[in-house]
């Protein structure tokens, strides 16, 4: 196997220093903590495979021990 050249080491060092941010200059977005209109409980449950008393009904999560 050929020896690794100085240029290859330099190139690897350069690649190791590349960092990726968002491709465009945008900042992290947080909105004001305001209460805004959202889905009603009925709407939120409208696609649920099963629901009961205004809640999602799911299969048993913990085993019986």
């Amino acid at each position: 196997m050929a020896a690794i050249s100085r240029d290859e080491v330099a190139n690897l060092a350069r690649l190791a220093r590349i960092t990726m941010t968002h491709p465009l200059a945008v900042n992290n977005v947080t909105r004001e903590d305001l209460v805004l209109p959202s889905l009603t409980p009925t709407e939120a449950l409208s696609g649920a495979p099963a629901s009961d008393e205004g809640r999602f009904k799911v299969p048993q999560i913990l085993g019986e021990e």
Binding site: G47, A48, P49, A50, F56
Partner: peptide, 11 residues
Amino acid sequence: DSMRFGLRVGD
């Protein structure tokens, strides 16, 4: 995950 919307199989 079959919990909140979409398909649920084998329940």
